[in-house]
């Protein structure tokens, strides 16, 4: 695809960001996908893009987004475990945004990934899931690439304004630098607070590891059960073909590739 000749810097792009959690340590950081959304926004609109967070402005991790070279980050002040949907949709209705970018799901809290859909519903805008690239925009119609599993892409045409969520197929976020992060400004606005009903009934617990599914043994007789129980556990060294001709070796590989269905 040729780089689009159109100038997207005039585009009014808003990225919604949240506080993330590092996958191994759980410490607060800029959320991976949200940072990718900001990256996409920066590529489209440059520094003119707006970045909005609904939550606690004192959270240091927010500076991670400023460190990407954004001068200002709007914070809609919200207490922990509030439903930020209304605060955000109120803000966005007034913002004359043309493109709203978000990550696919939050790294903390429920992380249901519902926010972009609910916003789209509230604003009455279309939503593109898994945006990978905006190819061009003309006359209020955007041509975008949507990321599919395993690196595949699908081209979509969508009416502006729209909401797009990005996942890990979007361009990697640029490094967050200390200098701009320190200089960047957090502007805080009060917003309507709407408590989240979820935590009245549900509760968060440390994740329980899920065991890998074992081969289900449907043994009818005692002998079969015995056999299954004493069978050598799978794994522990695969098949090794030594002293065979290249053709035999190739045949074995070919068979495995066919069985796995990766040959097209």
């Amino acid at each position: 695809m040729q780089p689009s000749p159109m100038d997207t810097t005039a585009l009014n792009v808003v990225a919604l960001v949240s506080i993330g959690a590092h996958p191994t340590s759980g410490r607060p950081r800029r959320a991976e996908q949200d940072a990718r959304a900001v990256e996409l926004g920066l590529r489209l609109a440059g520094e003119a893009m707006q970045v909005v967070h609904a939550g606690d402005a004192r959270q240091e991790a927010l500076r991670g987004y400023l460190g990407m070279g954004i001068k200002q980050l709007h914070v809609l002040e919200q207490p922990a475990q509030a439903d930020v949907l209304h605060a955000l949709s109120d803000y966005l209705l007034d913002s004359d945004a043309q493109l709203i970018l978000t990550g696919s799901q939050a790294e903390t809290g429920e992380g249901s990934g519902m926010l972009p859909y609910l916003l789209a519903e509230q604003l009455g805008w279309p939503i593109v899931v898994g945006l990978a690239e905006v190819e061009r925009i003309d006359h209020g119609i955007a041509h975008v690439l949507q990321a599919l599993p395993r690196g595949q892409r699908r081209r979509l045409q969508v009416q502006m304004p729209f909401i797009a969520s990005v996942d890990n197929a979007a361009p990697l976020a640029r490094q967050s630098a200390f200098g701009p992060a320190r200089r960047g400004e957090l502007t805080v606005t009060a917003a309507n607070v709407c408590p989240d009903q979820l935590f009245k009934e549900g509760q968060l617990q440390p994740a329980r590891p899920r065991p890998k599914r074992l081969k289900v043994i449907k043994a009818k007789t005692g002998a079969e059960r015995m056999k299954a129980a004493t069978a050598k556990a799978s794994g522990g060294g695969g098949q090794v073909l030594k002293d065979c001709s290249p053709t035999e070796g190739a045949e074995a590989i070919f068979k495995l590739l066919m069985d796995e269905g990766v040959l097209r």
Binding site: G20, A21, P23, G26, A106, E107, T108, G109, E110, G111, L198, E201, G202, Q203, L204, Q205, P206, A207, R208
Partner: peptide, 13 residues
């Protein structure tokens, strides 16, 4: 269900 970045589980009706 898994919640957040997969470090927590959400138990709910």
């Amino acid at each position: 269900g898994r919640a957040g970045a997969g470090q927590q589980d959400l138990h709910r009706p």
